[in-house]
């Protein structure tokens, strides 16, 4: 019983850390999703001026460790030019996670778009639609449903990757857990911490499942 009361005592701190984790995850995935749509369309473009930079971006952010990206953005850039100093660690984290997750999401979106049958493009063309109209009115609405599972997957990945923000001094759920563990000299705190992670994951899985059902009415 003593163990349980200790775990309850840690809850306020843990929840504060969980709040940081959730905020960073939601904002980065939301903004990253917008950015990734342009990246995906850019990468699929036949114009090399568009497709090359987008491919390079995706290659870079998927090909280097997120840990290094965060480190470089926060500690590295100011050493190249003080004007590139990001004042707030929180803002730096948001930028890093957004840029990173956009690269992964772009590949999901590209896969989603390319999974739509070719006949749809041909039909749209027959109706005299431009490429933009075809994308906006025909392809992307259908892609949305197919995108929900991989986006949900990416969301959960980011949720756990947020544990890396400790290196720039932010206190997310993992950092708080480690701090409690070392100050109380016990690993007991990992139990409530993991339960909180599971609750967050369960909640967002539920939300994504609901969304998937809602958008599947057309299939």
């Amino acid at each position: 019983m003593d163990a349980i009361s200790r775990m309850v005592n840690w809850l306020p701190q843990l929840l504060l850390g969980a709040r940081m984790t959730i905020i960073i995850t939601i904002i980065s995935v939301a903004v990253g999703l917008v950015l990734s749509l342009f990246l995906a369309l850019g990468k699929m473009s036949k114009n090399p001026i568009l497709s090359k930079p987008c491919s390079a971006y995706i290659f870079f952010f998927r090909g280097t460790p997120l840990l290094m990206q965060i480190y470089f953005l926060y500690f590295g850039l100011p050493q190249f030019n003080p004007a590139l100093t990001i004042k707030s660690a929180f803002v730096a984290a948001l930028i890093a996670y957004t840029l990173n997750t956009a690269a992964y999401l772009a590949e999901n979106i590209r896969a989603g778009i390319q999974s739509i049958d070719k006949g749809q493009y041909e039909a749209a063309k027959a109706l005299g639609m431009t490429y933009g109209q075809t994308m906006r009115l025909i392809i992307i609405p259908q892609t949305v449903r197919r995108l929900i599972p991989p986006v949900g997957n990416e969301f959960i990945m980011v949720l756990k990757d947020v544990s890396l923000v400790a290196i720039i001094g932010l206190s997310d759920l993992t950092k708080v857990t480690r701090a409690i563990s070392s100050s109380s000299a016990t690993a007991l705190v990992y139990i409530p911490a993991m339960i909180i992670y599971l609750i967050i994951t369960a909640f967002f899985t539920f939300v994504f499942n609901k969304a998937e059902k809602k958008y599947s009415v057309y299939e």
Binding site: F75, P78, T85, A89, A166, I167, I168, G169, A179
Partner: peptide, 18 residues
Amino acid sequence: LRQYEKVINAFDELKTGR
């Protein structure tokens, strides 16, 4: 209180004025 894993990062923060 801002905690870092490496001493060098604490000094990085001081040098950038953060």
